[in-house]
Design a protein around this nucleic acid. Structure first.
Lengths: 166, 166
DNA sequence: GCTGAAATCGCCTAACG
DNA sequence: CGTTAGGCGATTTCAGC
C-alpha cells in the first residue's frame, strides 16, 4: 500500500502542514512529539521525496476582484494523444483556467476557471476556448456558491485504513 | 473595483506567498523591495482583512495512496434552500468529498472526490452519496490525468486589469 | 539508522524615529 | 517606511540510544 513507507510521525507532520503550512518548525515538532532537529530533517525528506509539493497561501480570489467561477466541460473532436496534449498545453497557457482535468466518459476535459466578471469570462469563452483547434463543444456552469473547498488529502481516511490493515 | 484598496506592494506580497507560502519574512521583504518590519505588518493586515485565508502544504495525494480522483455531478429533487443547505452539510461531513460547488443549469452540484481505489469510491457512491435524501441522480467521471492544477488567483490578469484602467 | 542537546546563526518582531 | 536591538526560531554539530 502506498504511503506505508511513512511512519505515524511523518503522516502527522503532513497533516499539520496541510492544515497550517506556515507553522514554525518548533511548533510543528511540539505537535508531533519530537524535538526540532529531527522534525526539520523529516520535513526536508518529505519535500525531497515529493510528498510535499509546495506551500501556498490561500488567497480570497473574490476579494481580489475575481467574482466569477465557472466549470467548463469540454468535448474534443479528436482524442488522439497528440491532440489531447495540444489541448492541455493550451489550457496551461490560459491564466483564467486554474485547473484542467482529463476525464473518461462523454466529457473529455473539465476546466475550473475564474474571471473578474461574466463578460470577461464570455470573451475568454468565445474568443479563446471555443476558437481553439479541435474543440467540439463546451458546456459551462456558473458556480452559484462554494459549499466546501478543502483540496488535499483526507488524513482521517488514511489513518483509518492503516489502522484497519494493522 | 475590488482589490483596488491594495497597493502594488500588497499585491506583490500576495503573489509571492501564493507561490511559496513558507518563504521567510526577510526573503519576502527583499523580493517586494521593502524592509522586513513593514513587510510583516502588511502580511498581518492582509491576513486580518481576509485576503489571506490560510497557508497549506500541497501534499501529493497519489503518493499517499489516494489513486483515484472523481468528479460527481449531482442533481437533486428539490432545490428549496433548506434542501440545498442540507446537501451541502452532508458533503462537508464526507471526507472523500474535497470540494463541493453549487452550479446553475441542469446540474445542481459538482463534487470533486478522492479515494484510495475504485472500489472505495464505489462504496461511497452507492452507500452514501446515492442514498442521501433528495439526491435524484449522480453522474461520475474519473480523472484520467491531471493537466493543470494551480488553484488560486491569476495575478498576471489582475495586474493587467489594473494597468489598463490606470 | 535514529533521536536529542547544545551552540551558532539568522530571523522575527517589538519600539522608536 | 526604516533602523535598531533583544529574544526566539532555525539549523548545524556532536554525542547517545
Amino acid at each position: 500500500m502506498a504511503g506505508a513507507k511513512l511512519d505515524p510521525i511523518d503522516r502527522h507532520i503532513l497533516a499539520e502542514l496541510q492544515a497550517d503550512g506556515r507553522m514554525t518548525n518548533v511548533e510543528l515538532a511540539k505537535r508531533v512529539g519530537i524535538s526540532a532537529p529531527p522534525c526539520l530533517r523529516r520535513v526536508r525528506t518529505l519535500e525531497e521525496q515529493g510528498y510535499i509539493r509546495g506551500y501556498h497561501a490561500e488567497i480570497d480570489s473574490r476579494e481580489l476582484g475575481f467574482e466569477v467561477q465557472v466549470f467548463a466541460m469540454v468535448r474534443l473532436n479528436s482524442q488522439a494523444e497528440s491532440d489531447l496534449t495540444a489541448f492541455e498545453e493550451r489550457c496551461r497557457s490560459w491564466p483564467l483556467v486554474r485547473e484542467c482535468h482529463m476525464l473518461n466518459g462523454e466529457i473529455d476535459f473539465i476546466l475550473k476557471c475564474v474571471a473578474p466578471d461574466l463578460s470577461s469570462f464570455q470573451s475568454f469563452l468565445t474568443g479563446d476556448l471555443l476558437k481553439a483547434p479541435n474543440v467540439a463543444n463546451v458546456k459551462t456552469s456558473l458556480v452559484i456558491r462554494g459549499s466546501k473547498d478543502e483540496p488535499g488529502v483526507p488524513f482521517e481516511v488514511l489513518e483509518e485504513r492503516i489502522a484497519r490493515q494493522a
